[in-house]
């Protein structure tokens, strides 16, 4: 399994043809207390860059983009009842949705963990 990061502060775990997507710990810290997560329906298809989910704090609503193209195979229903999971465990239990990867070449050019850390430090 390998983990990728985007400059939109999302992480992607790739296992075979399935990618699990969430927002980074840095992102959840910036957003503050998460109060609601709107997740995509299973079967929804996204092109890379489409609005795929919404994450809300008290004062802001942020779009989560599909980091790569694909079809949603599962959404993390635990977030519906407990959006605070995104704050407490953004990069594991707080995942958002899983995609069936349409084009693995889109993963090229994404950051690894070290590169993302460097990117965050530069902000």
């Amino acid at each position: 399994m390998s983990r990728y990061f985007t400059d939109e502060h999302e992480w992607i775990d790739v296992e075979g043809e399935i990618a699990t997507v969430g927002i980074t710990d840095y992102a959840q810290e910036q957003l503050g207390d998460i109060v609601f997560v709107e997740l995509p329906a299973e079967g929804a298809s996204f092109e890379k860059g489409d609005d795929a989910a919404v994450v809300e704090s008290v004062k802001a609503a942020s779009d989560v983009y599909a980091p790569i193209s694909g079809e949603v195979v599962e959404s993390n229903s635990a977030l519906e009842d407990e959006p605070a999971l995104v704050n407490s465990d953004a990069e594991e239990d707080g995942w958002f949705f899983k995609l069936r990867i349409a084009d693995a070449s889109e993963l090229e050019g994404l950051m690894n963990e070290a590169a993302y850390k460097k990117f965050v430090a530069s902000l």
């Binding site: 609601f36 809300e56 704090s57 008290v58 004062k59 802001a60 609503a61």
Partner: peptide, 12 residues
């Protein structure tokens, strides 16, 4: 639930 509203969501 004011994230539904214009002063936060603006055009959305």
């Amino acid at each position: 639930l004011s994230t539904r509203e214009q002063h936060i969501r603006r055009e959305k």
